[in-house]
Write a protein that binds this DNA or RNA. Structure first.
Lengths: 350, 350
DNA sequence: GTGAAAGCGCTAACAG
DNA sequence: CTGTTAGCGCTTTCAC
């Protein structure tokens, strides 16, 4: 940090003009401020020549803006969020914004701390996958007029922009698909989380099951323990005890992963004996053996919508009393794992 | 952004003392500056009570520090980098630093632009997975005394801190493992990139092959086209034309993915007919059918080392003429995909 | 048309 | 021991 960066002041001195003029020119206000064409060109050329780069910190201190958006997710190493992060990042850059990501681990205290931190850094907008207990923090954020968009889940009694998917319908469709393919004892493996997205997924499953008068097979794993060994143990017990099961519907990526580990360790044939569907797609599912049927969220569209809405929020001066709630449809990508039992056996056990 | 945040000035006014005193106290310099215990306590309590949070922008403008580290990777949605990002982020937070990630897409211009941008934001340190042509940009960064650590690859003629793995040895070991398991015609599928990590991986493969007087089967895919359809087409052609192949060694994650897609589409039996090894592990490989043998990088250790070195660099005032090059060993995780041909057939074709 | 100057919030040298 | 003050680099009002 030794090479002193050229500042607006240096340019003014070198060109024997004033700081103000340089600032006006560099901010494209020559016209507006009636600055002569020659001076304007001279300043621009000189700035370019000596490689002037505005000090964004100073700019930010002065304007209260930072041209930074933050994307707070549960876990950046989760495929769904990582993919989305990349899409949003790209769109943000296209519009002159930088994107900062961070992982909240779905913990309220970490989320709160991070939000506080970004407020103090004049971040221009927040895209947040909220942890369960930060409704009031989000509420304050909105009261203080920070642009906020919630993603993936929301608080039913809080007025706030949000972009989510139709969890209930997706789940209903996926379950109905299994039913249509002759599966009669379909397990739904989920967490005990009270968050909207999980509740709606469960509801969709239950509606489909009830509609056909089938039996519910529900496993709710303690959210706190996801990823720990207990999760696998619980899944194994559940499967061992339910001999009648012929299909499994995993409510999230990490549950599927745990489930697959159990299948693999217990009895690899399960992959072909059970119908399998997962909420959330993953590139790997396409090339898995068998390939896995999954509910795919329209990542590109979600990302585009997020940035579009965010830019609108950031650029509007007037108050906006309206809040926008966007619900995307998902797509059920049907692959080998949910072929009807008969077909599956024909194909894989020649 | 309407609720005015309390500033140091407000505190000084309310407490009828001076800005300086408040600043000293809040920066933990009461002792050093001989400020009375009572006043100190009074200020701290009051600051806490009214929820004072320093404006980091102003702090940064003044001190030239930001308490931010940047982690520039090729692609944040790549599992390897996402995992590492999470580890580094956590360690950085523990030490009072925030971490910003971004994806360079391995492009020189985007990398250069990003580095410039972060310099202008007073980022305290750079952890960079460099794209091929930014040696001079890195060089400048170092000349300007910015702390820099290169990751995953380096420039052989540039003195710069780096953390890498022993690509050549890892590749040699993996190839030797295949050979030991009776595979005689082992393909190496890589890119035509000139970057150190890829070159060394190739060298390791070649050394192992030559040592046993086996035949080299090399496929170098144009780096620019990775992820495009041509990649898959090339792999398919290569495999179709080399009937004698009995094993494949993929030099990176995304090549394995393309390869698996080809296997899946062409002839799923290939998964069990070919020995398969991949450079870089992935949680999915463990639960794949067959589970995939992979070279696993010690992510935790790499992350810890990176942050440890970075903190040292950031905190040292004196010049450091030394540069540190760390080489980590990897671990070959042997799974089903590289069992000897005979065993594989016994197990999977009962 | 252009420039002087105030001030964003903070740190730290210097003065009492 | 505490306060005054000069900036960090920039934007923008107001004056000439």
């Amino acid at each position: 940090m030794i090479k002193k960066n050229v500042s607006i002041k240096d340019i003014a001195q070198d060109l024997k003009t004033s700081i103000t003029t340089v600032s006006f020119v560099l901010n494209g206000k020559s016209e507006e401020k009636h600055i002569s064409k020659k001076l304007t060109k001279e300043i621009i050329d000189y700035a370019f020549k000596i490689g002037y780069k505005p000090n964004q910190i100073a700019q930010s201190l002065r304007t209260g803006k930072s041209k930074i958006l933050v994307f707070m997710v549960e876990d950046i190493s989760n495929h769904f969020f990582a993919k989305l992060a990349k899409i949003i990042e790209y769109a943000a850059y296209q519009n002159g914004y930088k994107l900062v990501f961070c992982s909240t681990e779905n913990k309220d205290d970490k989320s709160t701390e991070l939000i506080e931190l970004f407020k103090n850094r004049n971040v221009d907008g927040f895209i947040i996958v909220p942890s369960p207990g930060i409704k009031n923090v989000i509420e304050d954020l909105i009261k203080e007029k920070h642009p906020v968009i919630l993603l993936d889940r929301y608080f039913s009694d809080l007025k706030c922009n949000s972009v989510i998917i139709d969890n209930q319908q997706s789940s209903f469709d996926a379950t109905s698909h299994l039913i249509a393919n002759d599966y009669k004892n379909i397990a739904f493996i989920t967490t005990d989380s009270e968050q909207t997205q999980m509740q709606n997924r469960l509801q969709g499953y239950q509606n489909a099951i009830n509609l056909k008068n089938l039996k519910e097979h529900l496993l709710k794993l303690p959210f706190e323990e996801i990823g720990k060994t207990n999760t696998k143990k619980n899944i194994k017990e559940f499967i061992d005890n339910k001999v009648e099961l012929d299909a499994v519907f995993f409510a999230t990526n990490y549950l599927a992963k745990a489930g697959f580990e159990v299948f693999k360790e217990t009895n690899p044939k399960l992959f072909y004996e059970l119908g399998i569907v997962n909420f959330d797609d993953n590139e790997i599912f396409e090339i898995y053996n068998p390939s896995i049927t999954a509910i795919s969220q329209p990542l590109e569209a979600i990302g585009a919508k997020l940035i579009d809405s965010m830019l609108r929020l950031v650029n509007q001066n007037e108050e906006n009393e309206m809040s926008e709630n966007i619900v995307f449809k998902t797509k059920l990508i049907i692959r080998e794992s949910s072929l009807s039992k008969i077909t599956m056996q024909k194909l894989f056990r020649p």
